[in-house]
Amino acid sequence: MTTPVAVLIGPPGAGKTTVGRLVAEQLGTEFIDTDKLIETEQQLTISDIFVERGEAHFRELEADAVARATSAGGVVAVGGGAPMTEATAQLLAPLPVVFLDVSIADAAGRVGFSGARPLLAVNPRATWTRLMGERRPTYERLATWIVSTEGREPADVAAEIVAKVRNHE
Rank of each mutant, 00 (worst) to 15 (best):
residue 72 A to Y: 06
residue 129 T to M: 08
residue 125 R to P: 01
residue 92 L to R: 06
residue 9 I to Q: 03
residue 156 D to K: 11
residue 131 L to F: 12
residue 92 L to T: 06
residue 40 T to S: 09
residue 67 A to P: 07
residue 118 P to R: 11
residue 23 V to M: 04
residue 110 R to S: 03
residue 161 I to H: 13
residue 70 T to N: 12
residue 2 T to E: 15
residue 155 A to R: 15
residue 13 G to W: 09
residue 152 R to F: 02
residue 113 F to V: 09
residue 104 I to R: 14
residue 30 E to P: 04
residue 95 L to R: 15
residue 119 L to D: 00
residue 129 T to D: 11
residue 153 E to D: 06
residue 128 W to A: 02
residue 135 R to T: 00
residue 152 R to A: 09
residue 42 Q to Y: 02
residue 51 V to Q: 14
residue 127 T to I: 09
residue 161 I to W: 14
residue 90 Q to P: 01
residue 18 T to P: 00
residue 8 L to R: 14
residue 131 L to T: 03
residue 169 E to Q: 12
residue 128 W to S: 06
residue 95 L to A: 08
residue 63 A to F: 12
residue 110 R to Q: 04
residue 37 L to R: 10
residue 108 A to I: 08
residue 123 N to S: 06
residue 163 A to R: 15
residue 116 A to Y: 03
residue 162 V to T: 04
residue 45 T to K: 04
residue 19 V to T: 03
residue 79 G to H: 09
residue 112 G to Y: 06
residue 81 G to F: 14
residue 147 V to K: 02
residue 114 S to V: 13
residue 21 R to M: 01
residue 90 Q to H: 13
residue 88 T to H: 10
residue 116 A to E: 04
residue 134 E to D: 14
residue 136 R to N: 08
residue 74 G to Y: 08
residue 152 R to T: 01
residue 42 Q to I: 00
residue 106 D to Y: 11
residue 52 E to W: 09
residue 81 G to W: 15
residue 26 Q to K: 09
residue 63 A to Q: 12
residue 148 S to C: 01
residue 139 Y to Q: 00
residue 37 L to Y: 10
residue 130 R to H: 02
residue 96 P to F: 14
residue 49 I to Q: 04
residue 1 M to E: 12
residue 139 Y to S: 00
residue 51 V to R: 15
residue 22 L to P: 00
residue 5 V to A: 14
residue 53 R to W: 13
residue 169 E to Y: 13
residue 26 Q to E: 02
residue 143 A to K: 05
residue 151 G to E: 13
residue 101 D to A: 14
residue 168 H to P: 07
residue 94 P to N: 06
residue 93 A to P: 03
residue 52 E to Q: 14
residue 151 G to L: 08
residue 117 R to W: 10
residue 57 H to V: 10
residue 41 E to T: 02
residue 77 A to T: 11
residue 40 T to I: 11
residue 77 A to N: 14
residue 9 I to Y: 11
residue 43 Q to P: 01
residue 97 V to N: 11
residue 33 D to E: 01
residue 31 F to A: 00
residue 36 K to T: 13
residue 41 E to G: 00
residue 21 R to I: 03
residue 54 G to K: 14
residue 84 M to F: 06
residue 3 T to A: 13
residue 48 D to Q: 14
residue 8 L to W: 05
residue 110 R to E: 01
residue 25 E to N: 05
residue 109 G to E: 07
residue 160 E to R: 14
residue 42 Q to V: 04
residue 126 A to I: 00
residue 122 V to W: 05
residue 57 H to W: 04
residue 138 T to A: 05
residue 67 A to W: 10
residue 97 V to D: 10
residue 50 F to P: 02
residue 22 L to T: 00
residue 100 L to A: 05
residue 137 P to N: 04
residue 109 G to V: 10
residue 53 R to K: 12
residue 5 V to R: 15
residue 67 A to D: 12
residue 68 R to W: 02
residue 104 I to E: 15
residue 153 E to C: 02
residue 3 T to F: 07
residue 26 Q to T: 01
residue 97 V to L: 13
residue 103 S to R: 14
residue 160 E to F: 07
residue 143 A to S: 06
residue 149 T to K: 15
residue 156 D to M: 07
residue 76 V to Q: 13
residue 20 G to S: 05
residue 2 T to V: 07
